[in-house]
Design a protein around this nucleic acid. Sequence first.
DNA 1: CGGTATCCGGAATGATACTG
DNA 2: CAGTATCATTCCGGATACCG
Lengths: 140, 140
Amino acid sequence: MARTDEKVRYAPEGKPFDYTPQTAALSAQNVIRVLEGRWKLVILFQLFGSNVRRFSELEKAIPGVSQKMLIQQLRQLEADGVVARIVHPQVPPKVEYHLTEWGQSLCPVLDKLLSWAEAAPADVRDRLIESDRSAANTQG
Amino acid sequence: MARTDEKVRYAPEGKPFDYTPQTAALSAQNVIRVLEGRWKLVILFQLFGSNVRRFSELEKAIPGVSQKMLIQQLRQLEADGVVARIVHPQVPPKVEYHLTEWGQSLCPVLDKLLSWAEAAPADVRDRLIESDRSAANTQG
DNA sequence: CGGTATCCGGAATGATACTG
DNA sequence: CAGTATCATTCCGGATACCG
């Protein structure tokens, strides 16, 4: 039952940097930090679907988000190199957001995360798939 | 340059449940929710290394954590089915924490996350690897 | 040893109004 | 259209004291 042949990669020999449990935990935490935030995953999955979106499109595609939060989360994702921002110098203004190369490469990673969620025990899985937070969005 | 042959899995045909961008974002958010928290990843990487630890062991292995936070994060991980808790009925009390089967299967997933961090642009990667948060722990 | 209970400060989030 | 500024609130993490 126990698959002890699973290889833990965070203490390799010739890797770019050698992981200890501490440093591995630290960088993993920072990855989570990039992804956490009330609206970041919602934004990212929007961009996975269409790749390029303007601000107002995202705003109406994401019910319940305020302008402040939307711009804040976008700015943070931009600062972390996940999304890029293009300003078209025209009036009325037009600003488009899209995934960077690195941002696009996140898609299969999140896929692994979802697979992990599917492999959860039934009771846990239900909580992971269907959240009470979705109820708040249905009343928009 | 654009690898458009990457398959997005969240809208498949015969999967256990069909993903829309919304539901995918939602469940992904909940997975992140399981992992986020000031000490959860640190705890998990401790358990990846040793698999079984008692409360006091974790406490001294993780500098800077308070009893309140340690027990809180452990309880949440337990509620989410990632770790399990075993009470040995003896005096003085002995309580051990270990990864569940599902919790162990998280290891390769975090591995993918770390690989993604390594693939980041140089400037971003540096921020992901070395966090300012670690500075706060060095004064303990 | 392995917790609980309570209080506090700061950060994250959100509603609202205003602007180039 | 695409933001910025301000204020209110809620949530999270930490310090401290106490308990079976």
